[in-house]
């Protein structure tokens, strides 16, 4: 799944209570890899959003609960996750690729091409 276009979605307000998913962030020569734990979020309720240099990860938890269920103990007490990261300039936000399996999101953010040397042509007038 690759989602780098600003998806049409209802804007969730930043102050809406949400869980902060735990993440691992690893960097190597090719770019940054981010892993996030989002258990209970089905693929279609995961929302990745890149705008300017801000990466937003949002997900709604959807557990099939039988009607009339009463919670007797709850450690996961909010139905959504949300976490925002600021990307740095050398990362290419338009080439983010994402995998989502068994509640674990893996995001690969490559480093931008512009880091490579470019020849500047000088015109003689």
């Amino acid at each position: 799944m690759s989602d780098n276009s600003p998806a049409v979605k209802k804007e969730t307000t930043a102050d809406e209570a949400a869980l902060l998913p735990p993440v691992d962030v690893v960097e190597d020569a090719s770019g940054i890899t981010l892993y996030a734990d989002l258990p209970g979020v089905p693929k279609e309720k995961l929302n990745l959003h890149v705008e300017a240099d801000t990466l937003t990860i949002e997900g709604e938890i959807d557990l099939e609960m039988p009607g009339g269920m009463e919670a007797s103990h709850a450690e996961v007490s909010l139905p959504r996750y949300r976490r925002v990261f600021t990307l740095s300039k050398e990362l290419d936000a338009s080439k983010v690729s994402a995998e989502f399996r068994n509640g674990v999101l893996k995001l690969a953010i490559p480093k931008a091409e512009h880091a490579q040397p470019r020849k500047v042509e000088v015109k003689i007038l």
Partner: peptide
Amino acid sequence: GGFPAMNVGGTPQSVDIFAFAPG
């Protein structure tokens, strides 16, 4: 705060345990 986080709920017919254990 342990892993996996757990929610426990019940209906008159069953007891349901949800363990949040991704990956």
